[in-house]
């Protein structure tokens, strides 16, 4: 019975999300109009992208606090290149963004894998290094909308089949991640490494290498999101997406991805991100100051982690026979 409850954690979260939407709809019915929901989804796309990468990392019992700084740095670099050399094709810039993000993720992964430094320390450190580097290369100056090329800014907003490219990228990433986690040996390895590292070693899986690959994936997504973010908001400066790493971790924790590793699903990460996205977009609608958002996501993290811990509490060895016990 408890087993059924745990497996339907995603269903529970989906129910909570529906309830939240219904509550907002009572005050402001327009919020749940399809067009507005699409807007909310589009707004949440960066969070979804980063939450997917973070999920892979958390599945392997690590954490990546450098994602937002990674995003900001790649965003700044591609924006500056776009300003300095407008001739560089957009495809090359996007490839560069993904490549840079990947490299930064690999740097985290190498430190965790080869030097066995705790992930929290590594990514706290690289977070400030990446963020500080933005200042070094930009001199603290902003890259503004009018300096960026039209094509550079247009792509994330371009509408295909009724949805902006930004949304399509998020949808594609969700599908790709679902495929990776359920249909590839790498995906299996993520779960195995986090769920039972010793047994994973026995099954011939290299734990450190798997964690490295998770960080690499997280970095690649952060890089891609870096371009999308800067292009969509048409501005780049040192502090963009400041503190966003906490939202990302919050989305994962709310989505039922256990910080102890090995537990979580793509649907969970998606729903966790959407939950936060809906709250963020609903606050102004129901006349609550956006300054409430930080406290709400903090509360959501604490509640979610407490609930998850309760659900997965281990049940001892069970020495007494069940039949005798029932008697």
């Amino acid at each position: 019975m408890t087993g059924r409850l745990v497996t339907s954690r995603e269903a529970l979260l989906a129910g909570a999300l529906m309830l939240l939407l219904a509550l907002v709809a009572t005050r402001f019915p327009g919020f749940v109009a399809p067009a507005n929901l699409a807007r909310v989804f589009n707004d949440t796309a960066p969070l979804i992208l980063l939450a997917l990468g973070q999920m892979a990392v958390i599945l392997t019992r690590c954490i990546d606090l450098s994602v937002a700084a990674n995003l900001a740095l790649t965003g700044m670099i591609v924006a500056m290149i776009n300003v300095a050399a407008p001739g560089v094709p957009l495809a090359a810039l996007i490839a560069l963004a993904v490549g840079l993000g990947t490299l930064m993720g690999m740097a985290n992964g190498i430190l965790v894998w080869k030097l066995d430094i705790p992930p929290i320390v590594v990514t706290l450190g690289t977070m400030t290094i990446y963020r500080g580097t933005i200042f070094l290369i930009s001199g603290g100056k902003w890259v503004n909308a009018h300096e960026m090329g039209a094509a550079f800014k247009a792509l994330p907003r371009a509408v295909i089949l009724g949805l902006p490219v930004m949304s399509w990228v998020a949808i594609a990433a969700v599908l790709a991640f679902w495929l990776v986690l359920t249909r590839t040996t790498l995906g299996r390895a993520f779960y195995a490494v986090g769920g039972n590292p010793r047994a994973a070693t026995y099954a011939g899986i290299d734990v450190g290498r798997t964690q490295f690959l998770a960080f690499t994936l997280s970095g690649a997504l952060a890089g891609l999101t870096g371009y999308l973010w800067v292009a969509r908001y048409a501005v780049a400066y040192v502090d963009i997406a400041g503190g966003f790493e906490l939202d990302v971790v919050a989305a994962c924790v709310i989505g039922g991805i256990s910080i102890m590793g090995g537990v979580g699903s793509v649907a969970g990460a998606l729903l966790g991100a959407l939950f936060l996205g809906v709250i963020k977009n609903a606050l102004p609608v129901v006349n609550v100051s956006p300054f409430w958002q930080l406290a709400i996501s903090g509360t959501a993290i604490i509640v979610a982690v407490a609930l998850n811990a309760r659900a997965s509490r281990s049940r001892g060895r069970i020495i007494l026979r069940r039949a005798e016990h029932a008697a």
Partner: peptide, 21 residues
């Protein structure tokens, strides 16, 4: 019995969030 790293990432948002409110 929650891991302190997650708890305090949560309270970090909560406490500062209250200041912002």
């Amino acid at each position: 019995g929650l891991p302190s790293i997650v708890v305090t990432i949560g309270t970090m948002s909560l406490f500062r969030g209250i200041s912002y409110i």
